[in-house]
Amino acid sequence: MATETAALAHERVGTTTGPVTLVLHGGGPGCHAAGDFAAVLAVRPDRNWLLVDLPGYGGSPAAGGPRLGTAAAALRDLLDGLGPDRVDVLAQSYGGLVALHLAADAPERVGRMVLLGSVPTPTPGAITGLPVDTGLGARLRADYSGDGRPDLARMRRLIATAEWHDGGAVPDALVAARFRADRAADGAVGVPEDLGDRLGAVTAPVHLIWGRHDPFAGPAYADALAGALPRADLTVLAATAHHPQSERPDAVAALVDAHLGS
């Protein structure tokens, strides 16, 4: 059952032995850890998973202050309360930004990281002109709920056009789960924060997983981000967009095993 510590809802699933893998979700409407990563959890029930909903998402209350810093501080408090000295991380998009913030500020708490489609800065390594759309998230939210009338059809359109490469394959159950969990009124989205000056402090080994057709930032961006992080590798998945964990769960699970250990 999900519980709350340090204002963050969390849930332990899988095995109770072995290293803990912290799971953090993306920042789209209705995103939450159990929903975003349900397909990966189903094919790897033998890992020690810690699922966390960040402030304003899933079962966690909204919080004031700078979005990433506040979320990272709440996450650190949660880990202090639960007790694991160090966790590995599997995170998507916004969750990856929170994880990078935590890894830069408290490197002793983070082991190895697998990040999917996370865009912590528009100019990694001070490289300009990269294929990154910093305003896409805001436009998607405006289309989904800007008039205060979100519905299942709009949620499906959002997922199909921005998160999956094969929009026709999006499961009805995923659309329904995201719609049920949507809490747009809580104001979880804040002003974008640039983590470019923190990337050099991330000493944890990072494996970036990227969809070749990710509309938020293309593979050239991912390659630059890998170069800006001190210890990073990159895998680009064909026929995949912004949510590889849902669209390609078997491939993601294999890469998680390879980087974090099986």
Rank of each mutant, 00 (worst) to 15 (best):
A73N: 07
A74Y: 03
A74R: 09
L75R: 01
L75Y: 08
R76C: 15
R76M: 02
R76D: 15
R76I: 06
R76E: 13
R76L: 12
D77I: 00
D77H: 09
L78C: 08
L79V: 09
L79E: 08
G81W: 07
G83S: 12
P84K: 00
P84S: 12
P84T: 13
D88R: 03
V89L: 05
L90F: 03
A91K: 02
A91I: 09
A91G: 06
Q92Y: 09
Y94G: 01
G96C: 03
L97D: 02
L97E: 03
A99Q: 04
L100Q: 01
H101G: 03
H101K: 10
L102Q: 00
A103L: 02
A103P: 07
A104I: 02
A104L: 05
A104P: 09
P107M: 13
E108I: 04
E108A: 12
E108S: 09
E108T: 12
R109E: 07
R109S: 10
V110F: 08
V110D: 03
V110S: 02
V110H: 04
G111E: 06
R112F: 11
R112P: 05
M113C: 11
M113E: 01
M113W: 03
L115H: 08
L115N: 01
L115V: 04
L116A: 13
L116K: 01
G117D: 11
G117F: 00
V119C: 06
V119E: 00
V119S: 00
P120M: 02
T121E: 03
P122K: 02
P124K: 10
G125E: 02
G125I: 00
G125A: 07
G129A: 11
G129N: 10
L130I: 10
L130H: 06
P131Y: 04
P131L: 01
V132A: 01
D133K: 04
L136R: 06
G137C: 09
G137D: 04
A138G: 09
R141K: 13
D143M: 14
D143K: 07
Y144A: 11
Y144H: 12
D147I: 14
G148F: 10
R149L: 08
R149H: 15
P150E: 10
D151Q: 05
D151G: 14
A153T: 15
R154M: 03
R154D: 08
M155S: 02
R156V: 10
R157I: 03
L158E: 03
L158D: 02
L158Q: 05
T161Q: 15
A162M: 06
E163N: 14
W164H: 14
D166F: 12
D166H: 15
G167A: 08
G167P: 10
G168K: 13
A169C: 06
A169D: 14
V170E: 04
P171C: 12
P171V: 13
D172I: 08
A173G: 14
L174R: 05
L174Q: 04
V175I: 14
V175Y: 05
V175R: 01
A176D: 13
A176N: 11
A181G: 07
D182K: 03
R183Q: 10
R183F: 11
A184K: 01
A185K: 11
A185Q: 14
V189S: 13
G190P: 01
G190T: 02
V191E: 15
V191P: 12
P192E: 06
P192A: 13
G196H: 13
G196W: 11
G196C: 03
G196P: 05
G196N: 06
D197C: 10
R198A: 14
R198Y: 07
L199Q: 00
L199A: 04
L199I: 11
G200C: 03
